[in-house]
Amino acid sequence: MKFTEEHEWLRVEGDLVVVGITEHASEQLGDVVFVELPAEGTEVVKDDEVAVIESVKAASDILAPVDGEIVEVNSMLEDSPGKVNEDPTGDAWFFKMKVADLSVLDDMMDEAAYKAFIG
C-alpha cells in the first residue's frame, strides 16, 4: 500500500489503483456523515477535486492522487458514510482508477514513511 501527503492510500489491484483515506485521516475528520463520489468514467488529473467528504466538523475535498480515469466508485459510502470511520482502509475505499503508468506509485510513501510523516 502507498500513501500520499493528502492522507490517501493507494492499493494496486490488477491493472487498477484503489483509493481511500487513511485511518489517521478518518480519525482527524471525526464522524463522517456524507460522501459525494465522482461519476464513473471521469478523466482526472492529479490534484483534481474528485470527491467530497463531510464529517460532523467540516467538509473536505478528496484529490485525485494520480492522473487517470475513475472506473468504479464505492456507492455504498453514499448510504453508509460512517463506514469511512469503521473500516477506512478496507470496505470504505472511495474509487478505483485506471492509470496509464503504475510506476508513478513508486515514488510515493510506503507505510513506514507515512507513519513517520504523520508523526
Binding site: G30, D31, V33, V56, K57, G82
Partner: peptide
C-alpha cells in the same frame, strides 16, 4: 470540543 467517544456518539 470532543472527548474520545467522538461527536456523534
Amino acid at each position: 470540543v470532543q472527548y474520545p467517544l467522538g461527536v456523534m456518539k
